[in-house]
């Protein structure tokens, strides 16, 4: 399975943010998107996910199983917001996303253990600290199976130990044949990740 972006251009509010971005990502590879603020990293991820229309070029996924015919159906998108409800408990939130997304992978308890949140699943999401919220959102990636992870500054708010643990989670995802596109300013600790620097070639 391959993710291919050809000559991709993105715009925000009618103004071109970036153009001519192209890459091909093979199974098991990770792509780290870096660059200064405002260069369009988040826009790129949203264009890849299909949440924003591409101003030019296109993104497609090839050779995947028939469960994942399009990029949108094959991806987990982790944006700046965690997509969790404050009033519901962590477990309820995760269980909802597992049931809604389908393709069950880990159980909710296993996912929480993987991100080091075991024992607080019963707390309302609103009670958690910023870092814990982010970790719960990362656990969301684990409860249902998607080959492609689109991560927008995934480690924002995480402490060193959690960063390391998340690096391990991402490395394992790649080793299992997954793909990752992550926009970040910090090193993520994925082994063998490629880098796409935005804002320099243009």
């Amino acid at each position: 399975m391959r993710l291919i972006a050809e000559n991709l251009g993105g715009e925000r509010g009618g103004e071109t943010v970036f153009s001519g971005i192209g890459f091909a990502l093979e199974k098991g590879q990770a792509l780290i998107v870096t660059g200064p603020n405002g260069v369009g990293k988040s826009t790129l991820l949203r264009v890849i996910a299909g949440l924003l229309p591409a101003a030019e070029g296109r993104v497609r996924i090839e050779g995947g199983p028939e469960d994942f015919p399009s990029v949108a159906s094959a991806c987990h998108y982790l944006g700046h917001q965690n997509a969790m409800k404050q009033a519901l408990s962590v477990t309820e939130n995760l269980r909802f996303w597992r049931d809604f997304s389908g393709e069950v992978a880990l159980s909710v308890e296993e996912a929480l253990e993987t991100v080091g949140l075991d024992g607080i699943g019963h707390l309302p999401f609103g009670y958690l600290s910023t870092g814990q919220r982010r970790r719960a959102a990362i656990a969301k990636l684990l409860v249902s199976r998607r080959p492609l992870w689109l991560l927008d500054e995934p480690t924002a708010g995480l402490d060193k130990a959690s960063e390391g643990r998340f690096g391990g989670v991402m490395t394992k995802h790649c080793r299992d044949g997954g793909m990752i596109v992550a926009a970040t300013h910090l090193p993520l600790g994925i082994e063998g990740a490629r880098e796409l620097r935005m804002g320099e070639a243009v």
Partner: peptide
């Protein structure tokens, strides 16, 4: 929309 769930609901469109 405020907590980002809407993006994921929209992405679910293909399923």
């Amino acid at each position: 929309r405020e907590d980002g769930s809407l993006d994921l609901l929209v992405l679910g469109n293909d399923r």
